[in-house]
Computed example of a mutant assay.
Amino acid sequence: MSATDAKSPAVSGQRVTPLDEAAAKGLTEAEAARRLAQYGPNALIEHRVSALARLAHFFWGPIPWMIEVAAVLSAVVRHWPDFVVIMVMLVLNAAVGFWQEFKADNAIELLKRRLALQARVLRDGQWQDVAASELVPGDVISIKLGGIVPADVTLLDGDYLGVDQSALTGESLPVDKKPGDEAYSCSIAKQGEMTAVVTATGMNTFFGKTAHLVQQAKSASHFQRAVLKIGNFLILITIGLVVVIGLAALFRHDPLIETVQFALILTVASIPVALPAVLSVTMAVGAKSSLA
Results as ranks from 00 to 15, higher is better:
A132Q: 10
V136Y: 01
P137D: 13
P137H: 10
D139V: 03
I141G: 01
K144Y: 07
V149Q: 07
A151M: 04
D152T: 09
V153M: 08
V153W: 10
T154Q: 14
L155V: 08
L156G: 11
L156T: 10
G158R: 01
Y160T: 10
Y160S: 13
L161Y: 06
V163C: 05
V163N: 06
G170E: 04
L173K: 04
L173H: 02
P174A: 14
P174K: 13
V175D: 04
D176P: 00
G180K: 09
G180H: 09
Y184W: 14
C186S: 15
I188K: 11
I188F: 07
A189N: 14
Q191P: 01
M194L: 05
V198D: 00
N204A: 14
T205F: 11
T205S: 14
F206E: 15
F206P: 08
K209N: 10
V214M: 09
Q215A: 14
A217N: 13
A217R: 04
K218H: 11
A220Q: 14
A220F: 13
F223R: 07
F223T: 10
R225A: 03
L228Q: 12
N232F: 09
I239N: 12
G240Q: 01
V242W: 03
V244W: 03
V244Q: 02
L247T: 10
A248N: 07
F251E: 12
F251P: 07
H253R: 14
V260R: 05
L264M: 02
L264P: 03
V268W: 03
V268S: 06
